[in-house]
Design a protein around this nucleic acid. Structure first.
Lengths: 206, 206, 206, 206
DNA sequence: GATGAATGAGTGTTCATTCAT
DNA sequence: AATGAATGAACACTCATTCAT
């Protein structure tokens, strides 16, 4: 997905696929635990149970291992499902928003270290930033579409800007509520955030 | 402020203070431009016009130069002034919030590189995170206090959580609107955000 | 020719011979273009359309591929023909020498890269040097024999030393005239060299 | 001489000059013995009695250590003196040429390994070739000038081409007579070469 | 106080060679 | 016979830190 050059191996055989997967999983584990810069390629190979050279058989360099993990379908899929599955019919507007937030928070919980690493790397690396922007935009589109399904209930008209702002707020609140060793529990923060968003987006909420 | 060991010099003489200041300023310039990891101590010394060894006379190591800059009064002061100066009397609630946002955005503009670096480093470094949390809390306190001054106009009661969420939203929207090479201009995003916050915080806003 | 160990395959079947040939040809092409050190075995295999492992089925290691090419009959044959074909009867002495030079220069033109590579490797590798010496000696013998055919016209008596010196001169002039991005055209240099040799070797030349 | 970038140290202090010299001498020793490619930077540092990093303080990279040695004044000076010191007055033409050859041969004797390495590297490296060409041209100029001093005795008119050809012949004969484990002693070869050149260059030589 | 030369552990990456299939 | 995935030693180069002057 990231490579494509003649030099990196594109595994077709069973064994090759397994090896690449082992590397990917080992790398994700280590990047999450120790961060990108503090993980070296020898460790990745060791953790994956392969030789150093094998990492370079499947990936151009260390960074493209990272990019492959981050850009992989799983990340996109998860984020999109988060929006798609919002069930508008059965709940109050506020509950709908809260469900969205909880879903997003859950994803952070699944690989908190990796998410942390992404937010560190993207500020200094064009390629990481590009993927982050792509994912952000995919989510925005999804969110805009979702909001349109309840158009009559909406207060706001500039859905694009609203979606952008909402996603930013969610991202940072979830991030900060995990790392800031807070005196306020995450649940209370998500509640508050849901309140703010719901009140902003919908005409009434009761 | 960061050291205290016997090894690092605590300048009392005029000359020593000047040297330390030159290093601090040079480092801030370089960290902002190139990031922490891509700036080496030799460059800092060169930019400051001192010898490499002098950096280690005043600072334990490279990181504590960073910490000293970030934790210095100037950063706190700025952020606190931002809140303190909000003039509640003359404007509508929405205008007040917008003024807050613009002030925060302006601070990002003053040293965007350094802020970028902070948000990268804090996720992997306890010490940086600690300072960030401290600043965040200082702002939160300030914001809570400020809101209390207009208590009668408020919709919300959990001011602590609200302040936390508001600040997170501001931080990320400003950050993202700078880096995401956005199809939406910053002004439109700040407007949107101000709308969201004002409607959330205040009983009425018209 | 170079191996003989039990490990390397000695092809008897049609297919094996073809495979070995494909490798040899691919390697010669790549060594000529990119040099020995900058060509890796994977590339050789790819260029030959075989698997990496097959190279090691027919050759002990990378170097013995090189040795096999260089020591092969084709190289000797060409150089010897160059001498053998000199037609002494129809031309002036100077013209004969010039014809020799042009023939040698032409061979350089046919595979300049490979010759270049030989002259680089022989200085650091006993085996390459050995082949080079062998070829040089073969040529010397040939040249001595050739000169003997015109014995009466000769000035000189120490034909062995003369042949050695002549061949060295030819080799380097041709080499240098190709690489030194010269301000003097090759033709003029060959003319000059022919002059020098003819005047040295023959009693008269007019 | 080769660097000049801001990154490589230009030694002014006594100690720095000594260190750079130690590295240069160690490298020349190792390159001569084992060749450029088989000498690694750690070895150079160890042989010089300094740390690996010090090599990179004074030289951009491994190759520029080589270039610095080869391009240094000593090499140029020696070659030029060789020509300049030819004493035309007291000897026969043949003796003059022989003196030239012996002087050149002697230089090869001083650092045979390094010369060998040069002739290997120049065929694959633009920078090495450039220095070689420069030295060759300097010698050519010198030789042409020298010949002009005996203009009346000359047979030839195209001095540039002649000088080029003569130098090539000398270079390769000396080189080959050292490495080809020859059945002919060097002295005999130089004698032969001197004969060839003298007869070519001068009107009479007896 | 100040200098800047010296240090040396650490890292990403390459590639000749092997071997299970 | 042939494959190509896997190996792992080797190497050039960087840079935070120290210390003799």
């Amino acid at each position: 997905m990231t490579q494509g050059t003649q030099k990196t191996r594109k595994p077709t055989q069973q064994r090759g696929i397994q090896t690449k997967d082992k590397i990917l999983q080992a790398a994700e584990r280590l990047f999450s635990e120790k961060g990108f810069h503090k993980t070296n390629t020898k460790e990745i190979a060791a953790e994956a149970g392969v030789a150093t050279g094998s990492v370079y058989a499947y990936f151009k360099d260390k960074k493209s291992v990272f990019l492959d993990i981050y850009g992989s379908a799983s990340h996109i899929t998860f984020l999109q499902k988060t929006c798609r599955d919002l069930d508008f019919s059965k709940k109050s507007n506020r509950e709908i928003i809260l469900a969205l937030l909880q879903s997003l928070a859950e994803e952070h919980t699944l690989s908190p270290g990796f998410r942390r690493e992404v937010s560190a790397m993207r500020v200094n690396d064009k390629d990481v930033e590009a993927i982050h922007t792509r994912l952000h935009e995919a989510m925005r589109t999804q969110l805009v579409d979702t909001l349109r399904r309840k158009e009559k209930a909406l207060r706001i008209t500039d859905l694009d800007a609203a979606a952008f702002v909402i996603l930013c707020a969610c991202e940072e609140v979830i991030h900060a509520s995990r790392t800031n060793t807070p005196d306020i529990e995450q649940e209370r923060l998500l509640d508050t955030l849901a309140d703010m968003i719901a009140r902003y987006v919908f005409k009434k909420d009761f």
